[in-house]
Amino acid sequence: MANTNPSQLLPSELIDRCIGSKIWVIMKGDKELVGTLRGFDVYVNMVLEDVTEYEITAEGRRITKLDQILLNGNNIAIVSKSYL
């Protein structure tokens, strides 16, 4: 691995380790998604499967289920493996 500092964990490396497992994606706005990560690219656009989308509103959470999606990485704020 061409990592100059092996004691450090690169962001892309961590996401790579999450491929195949369930991840929690928090968008810049008020949307959050939980789904299985199938792949991602340099822009951190993601392919997710069995997705549950949560839209946090004043009234509560609006839930949408989606089979397979391509998520544009432009608006992703946080990615976590452990979720809620």
Binding site: Q8, L9, L10, S12, L14, K28, A77
Partner: peptide, 26 residues
Amino acid sequence: KLTGGRQVTGTLKGYDQLLNLVLDEA
């Protein structure tokens, strides 16, 4: 602080040139 106003604290574990960060116990 992230764009959109989210604010997070944690232990810095790594980063890249674009200032994407890995934080533990965030």
